[in-house]
């Protein structure tokens, strides 16, 4: 949909190198913060005021997320930048909708994963981080989870690139694995910044592990390992359903999908997708038989 400008000079290799450097710095900040927190955790979670770890978690993860945004956002084409607000709104609206009517899960990453599948890992990472930052406008407690959300978007994009959405049964598996990684990385934030989790239900699970004598970080990591993989498996499945329900014309306008053959059966099922396009807005046929 968008093309490089014909009249303005394109950014030179120096700018590209600077962005690559920022990307690497952001990733290093996030990874370094995590490793530091895990290695140093028992010393000051309960002894003393315990806010040095909170500050390290906050600043390290936030700086990493902001660096990633600064590196990625200017490189995205306008067609992707325009999708990011849509993703943020979907995160909020569909998350609320599913949370209230479908299942007792906290599905707040549907939009992020959708953009990652449509536009690639870089766009997914930027969307995840931006989602946390913009959402913190109404709920400042999600701000420290920006790095975790960026990681989930990036992993979802990588899964899409490597064909995990070509077979319908692979999407939940990819979501499960993403949930494990994302949950483990987000656990120190919950432990050190908030001293717990934000929900009463998840709090109960953490309490159960605490009553067995676990440290706070261990208890929260275990809780994350129980709820996050399931949550992300559902999110990935929902996204697969949504993406396959899109008409072919809409799907194929994304270069990432065309280049990496993200979805199944793009070349052959002309008739099926034309039928779907004809009934736009109404329920299409059961999805997922795309293989």
């Amino acid at each position: 949909m968008s093309s490089p400008s014909l009249t303005l000079p394109s950014p030179g290799p120096a700018a590209a190198r600077k962005r690559r450097l920022l990307e690497i710095l952001g990733a290093v900040a996030i990874a370094g913060t995590y490793v530091y927190l895990v290695l140093n955790q028992p010393t000051d979670i309960t002894g003393g005021p315990g806010s040095a770890s909170a500050l390290i978690a906050l600043s390290g993860f936030l700086v990493g997320a902001v660096l990633l945004i600064v590196a990625v956002l200017p490189t995205l084409p306008a067609s992707t930048v325009v999708l990011i607000p849509v993703a943020l709104v979907l995160n909020i609206v569909l998350g609320q909708f599913v949370g209230s009517t479908l299942v007792p899960f906290y599905l707040d990453a549907i939009g992020t994963v959708l953009i990652a599948v449509l536009a690639g890992p870089a766009a997914g990472a930027a969307t995840g981080a931006l989602s946390s930052i913009v959402w913190s406008f109404f709920n400042p407690t999600v701000l420290p989870f920006a790095a975790g959300a960026a990681l989930i978007g990036c992993l979802a994009g990588l899964a899409a690139r490597h064909g995990m959405f070509r077979r319908f049964y692979l999407a939940p598996v990819a979501g499960f694995v993403t949930g494990i990684i994302g949950g483990v990385v987000s656990a120190p934030v919950a432990a050190f910044v908030f001293g717990g989790t934000s929900g009463v239900a998840t709090g109960a699970i953490v309490s159960a592990f605490r009553s067995m004598g676990d440290t706070l970080l261990a208890a929260i990591t275990k809780q994350a390992l129980i709820s996050d993989p399931m949550d992300k498996a559902i999110v990935f499945t929902v996204v697969a359903v949504l993406v396959y329900a899109l008409p072919r014309r809409t799907r194929l306008q994304f270069p990432f999908i065309r280049r990496h053959r993200v979805l199944a059966g793009q070349a052959s099922n002309e008739a099926r997708t034309q039928a779907a396009a004809a009934t736009t807005g109404s329920p299409a046929q059961p999805t997922g038989q795309g293989s």
Partner: peptide, 12 residues
């Protein structure tokens, strides 16, 4: 599905 479809179309 209609919601996501209309939002993505509009974004284009």
């Amino acid at each position: 599905v209609p919601l996501v479809l209309s939002l993505i179309e509009e974004a284009g």
